[in-house]
Design a protein around this nucleic acid. Structure first.
Lengths: 123, 123
DNA sequence: TCCTTTCATCGATATCTATCAATACATGCT
DNA sequence: AGCATGTATTGATAGATATCGATGAAAGGA
């Protein structure tokens, strides 16, 4: 299991961080600093997994969507869940989102663990 | 007093948002998508208020610091606390940080958090 | 084998952004 | 008034990024 950095940064009382931590944190916030990528993440948040083809409805070209998926993937926020034929299905990486929430002072511990490993249907 | 949007966006189970909400949310994440600005916020997080002159130690020119302060100010994350002579003192806007943490699925509860955690430097 | 479909990558480009030097503004002091 | 200092604003520029069209890669079907 991959250990996600759990550093606080921006909430009152946060301890001073090092330059390298600002770099890595800002890189992950950068992934969320785009409306299209937020829309993708938001859509993945309400499903178990979503096909890339679903994002056509965002009104952007296919290469552009692919680019944004890559940015989110490299930030660790999403990942490829599985493939069915030529269809790619992406899913959210909840721990990565939690880590960012924590950096902003969100709840220190995952209080309602809404699922074990996989298969959270987010009712 | 502007009402801060308390919308969830990116955590599992988040409801679908509207285009305009992605715009405003991404704009605020954009303010945190820079290592220098994170360093500024981080420094303000451990103090009541900090003089602009303190940020000289970040190794950037004065106009550049001023620019980043403006970006953070326009994002509502910081504000001018007071002025003493020609010295400007900025402070964090905790509610704005909380709103972003909430958007990422952080605890919806208000801010008595940092009471239990000991070792908060803050002083 | 050839074609179709889905998605990723490449190349080009217009826009945005971080940065600095120069300048303007504001405040306090003499 | 005149000067010195701390910040903000302006203008310029190099680098980053969002976007698209064209192309490539992978999988399945005729």
């Amino acid at each position: 299991m991959k250990k996600l950095a759990t550093i606080t940064c921006c909430a009152p009382g946060a301890p001073p961080l090092k330059p390298k931590e600002f770099e890595s944190l800002s890189a992950r916030f950068k992934a969320l600093a785009d409306p299209t990528r937020l829309a993708i993440v938001n859509r993945l948040a309400s499903r178990d997994a979503a096909c890339v083809c679903e994002f056509n409805s965002l009104g952007l070209s296919q290469p552009t969507i692919s680019h944004h998926l890559k940015v989110l993937r490299e930030a660790g926020l999403i990942e490829i869940a599985y493939r069915r034929g030529t269809f790619y299905f992406y899913r959210l990486v909840p721990e990565a989102v939690e880590a960012l929430a924590f950096a902003l002072g969100g709840s220190a511990q995952p209080k309602l663990v809404l699922a074990t490993a996989e298969g959270t249907v987010a009712g």
